[in-house]
């Protein structure tokens, strides 16, 4: 087995749960450096092996991406086939199309061939924690289920042919015959989750992202 590649991971730090992501990434063996960036200059200051777009408010983040000249650099990064992972608002930003956008629309980074529905479960009172069944490729240790935190979370309504569904969830309040909703997907080097692995102690999704960045999965 080859020694793990030492990765430099960028975390978009304009708003939201970026500290939590940085903390989780630093616990991953493959990560040498975590770089929090708030503008285009900081993003370009060193090569980034992968980028995490954290949770937050996607409409606010869209305004800030424009203010800090980050929209085009991030689009170029995704277009170049570099590794990105969006959680919650980050997943919305990566989607090619969204529903329940801010009136008047909001900018997206795009790249993920999916239609994502903002606040799909409702308001904060409908936030929940659920145990997810995620295939072996994501979680080496299947004995230990993944506890996923959904906060005013989006879901993916439809995906393109090149998008693989990694996880689905049935909301706690759903009727018994309800179809599970798509909450985690992978499209080549794009990972998107509607929940928040960074709000738990479980770093298996962060480790999976690192393996994806390193080209191991």
């Amino acid at each position: 087995m080859t020694a793990p590649r030492k990765l430099t991971i960028g975390v978009l730090a304009i708003q939201g749960g970026f500290i939590e992501h940085s903390h989780a990434l630093r616990q991953c063996d493959a990560v040498e450096r975590v770089v929090e960036f708030t503008n285009a200059k900081e993003m370009a200051a060193q090569p980034l092996d992968g980028i995490v777009l954290p949770g937050g408010e996607s409409s606010a983040m869209a305004v800030l991406l424009e203010s800090f000249d980050l929209l085009e650099p991030l689009r170029a990064y995704v277009r170049a086939g570099k590794a990105v992972w969006g959680t919650c608002a980050g997943m919305i930003l990566l989607s090619d199309s969204i529903k329940h956008a801010k009136l008047g629309g909001q900018s997206l980074v795009g790249g993920l061939h999916a239609t994502t529905v903002r606040n799909a479960f409702g308001r904060q009172k409908e936030s929940f924690i659920a145990t997810l069944d995620v295939p072996d490729v994501v979680l080496a240790d299947r004995e230990k289920p993944f506890r996923a935190v959904f906060i005013r979370a989006p879901i993916i309504e439809s995906v393109g042919d090149d998008v693989r569904v990694l996880a689905r969830v049935v909301r706690p309040s759903a009727p018994p015959d309800a179809e599970p909703d798509i909450v985690a997907v992978r499209q080549d080097r794009i990972l998107a989750t509607s929940f928040h692995p960074e709000l738990t102690r479980d770093i298996r999704f962060h480790e999976y992202f690192c393996r994806m960045v390193a080209g191991e999965v």
């Binding site: 730090a13 304009i14 708003q15 939201g16 749960g17 970026f18 500290i19 939590e20 903390h23 949770g55 937050g56 408010e57 606010a60 919650c88 608002a89 904060q124 936030s127 929940f128 924690i129 935190v149 906060i151 005013r152 928040h196 709000l199 738990t200 102690r201």
Partner: peptide, 28 residues
Amino acid sequence: SSPTWTVNDSHSDAFRLKTGLAQNLKGG
């Protein structure tokens, strides 16, 4: 060594959902 936001397991799921939304508001 910067401050962490590791979730305290002693808090209930209900409380973690409440604090979780506020964590998403940071920087805003």
